[in-house]
Amino acid sequence: MASSIHEMLRANCKCDDVAKCVLGLKNLDLLAYKKLFEQGPMTAEELGDFLQRERSTAYRSLQNLIAVGLVYRETKSIQIGGYYYEYVAIPPMQFKEMLKQNIHDWYNKMDRLLDDFEEELLDSASK
């Protein structure tokens, strides 16, 4: 994957590359999202089995996905007492809109920063 915006503009990027860059995800995180969306709600252990990884590894990816808003968890009750969590992926259309909004927000922030570019550049050079 490209390591800078300049490289990304020149590279043959795919949607996964954009998602990883914009949201700071890893390959396994995206694979976990895709499996969760395809298969429907599941536990961390079930996801680990699908990914052929330990439950703890699947859980870390789930935490990354929850942190960026691509997955949420639901509490399920066990009839004999207790509970467990099932994880649910948001729909791809919502994912796409989230990416667009993040890119839009980033662009606006960079645009505002660049308004003072010359002044800041010259100010830092005189120090």
Score class of each variant (00 low, 15 high):
1 M>T: 12
1 M>V: 11
1 M>F: 12
2 A>T: 09
4 S>I: 08
8 M>N: 02
9 L>F: 14
10 R>K: 15
11 A>Y: 12
12 N>A: 14
12 N>K: 15
12 N>W: 11
12 N>E: 15
14 K>L: 11
14 K>Y: 07
14 K>Q: 14
15 C>S: 09
18 V>D: 02
20 K>V: 04
22 V>P: 05
22 V>L: 13
24 G>N: 09
24 G>Q: 09
25 L>K: 03
25 L>D: 00
25 L>Q: 03
26 K>I: 06
29 D>H: 08
29 D>R: 04
35 K>T: 05
40 G>N: 10
40 G>W: 03
42 M>C: 12
42 M>P: 00
46 E>V: 03
47 L>D: 04
47 L>A: 04
48 G>V: 02
48 G>N: 05
51 L>N: 01
51 L>V: 02
51 L>T: 05
51 L>A: 05
52 Q>K: 10
52 Q>Y: 07
52 Q>F: 07
53 R>W: 01
54 E>Y: 06
54 E>R: 13
55 R>M: 11
56 S>F: 10
57 T>I: 12
58 A>M: 03
59 Y>I: 01
59 Y>L: 14
60 R>K: 12
61 S>D: 05
62 L>A: 03
64 N>T: 02
64 N>C: 08
66 I>C: 06
66 I>D: 01
67 A>T: 11
68 V>S: 06
68 V>N: 00
69 G>N: 09
69 G>E: 10
69 G>V: 09
70 L>P: 04
71 V>D: 04
71 V>P: 02
72 Y>S: 10
72 Y>W: 08
73 R>S: 14
74 E>M: 08
77 S>I: 04
77 S>L: 13
77 S>P: 04
78 I>P: 02
79 Q>I: 08
80 I>E: 06
81 G>M: 01
81 G>T: 02
81 G>H: 06
84 Y>V: 05
85 Y>R: 02
86 E>F: 05
88 V>Y: 01
88 V>D: 00
89 A>H: 00
92 P>L: 08
94 Q>W: 05
94 Q>L: 10
96 K>N: 10
97 E>M: 13
99 L>Q: 02
99 L>T: 09
100 K>Q: 13
101 Q>V: 12
101 Q>W: 12
102 N>V: 05
103 I>T: 13
105 D>S: 14
106 W>V: 08
107 Y>D: 11
107 Y>N: 13
108 N>Q: 15
109 K>C: 11
110 M>A: 05
112 R>V: 08
115 D>K: 14
116 D>T: 09
117 F>G: 03
118 E>K: 11
119 E>Q: 11
121 L>F: 15
121 L>D: 07
122 L>P: 04
122 L>W: 10
122 L>F: 14
126 S>R: 15
